[in-house]
Amino acid sequence: MSTILTHIAISDGKIKRSSLEVLSHCKALAESGGHSVEAVIIDEKASSYVEDVQKYGASKIYVVQDPIFKNHMNTPLLKAFANVMEAANPFVVAFASTEGTKDILGALAANQNAAVLPDVSEFELTDGGIKAKRPVMAAKIIAQNEAKGERVLVSVRSGSYDLAENPTEAEVVNIDFSMDESELKSTLKEIISASGDTIDLNEAESIVAAGRGVKDEEGQNLISELASTLNAGIGASRALTEAGVYDPSLQIGQTGKVVSPQLYIAVGISGAIQHVAGMANSKVIVAINKDPDAPIFEIADYGIVGDLYKVLPPFIEEIKKIKS
């Protein structure tokens, strides 16, 4: 029997849903293969999340709690992981593919001499490792990969697996951690937060995304109104984040976030492959664009050909009617 360890990512005081999706999948893999599934929480308030993690079936939960984990910093995080690996001796370590994960995954693999497959959309266990699917070539095709080794790391795209509750009384293991700040050769000086209470795009049920067609404040107001009507997250194409119209953390695409919400409304977005790479796995796609030949229509379930400034007001009004 070997151990599958799942990392539980915490962001803004909440467990990332995508981590629990990964844990749910690992639990299913463990049950069918006769393995044990364990979890690790590394945070300034790590213990406070134990109860919620127990709902998803980990038999052991490693807790690394220290004020240094208030904000993401790779050096302490890598040190904490090294300590946890020593205690857990896992065969597979699974992560949700967040920016925080991307920052450490390669270094951790090198440190642990582990095989690693990042950003997969599916994975299963094999005799000596894992098999996984990864979108490649700007997500135009899927590569089937295998990783072999005594230790294998894998990160999973959000929305790849469903949540499955499976309450288990877990053993909680506190891992000692200490780090002298003077050991740090890198320091976090400042965090420039995205404005206000924006909805995490990786977790959002619905996303309204703005593209080049959204030209001015009037257009942005329409985007905001549609998003708040649907309780949706706001995303943007690279053109608008580069122009400084939307915060860079809202960029969707190959360079930015990869999302898979239930509903994705692309407003004034033409559908360049780099953008599509970040949203093609959305369940239902609506495109609003005045160019009937825009490539976004090739993947949209509902394509509205029209000027967004004329389409959005009645669209919003109708949704408000439905909602009430």
Binding site: S11, E190, I192, S193, S249
Partner: peptide
Amino acid sequence: QGDSGQEMI
């Protein structure tokens, strides 16, 4: 660019 904002390091 981090998960929810930009970090100066």
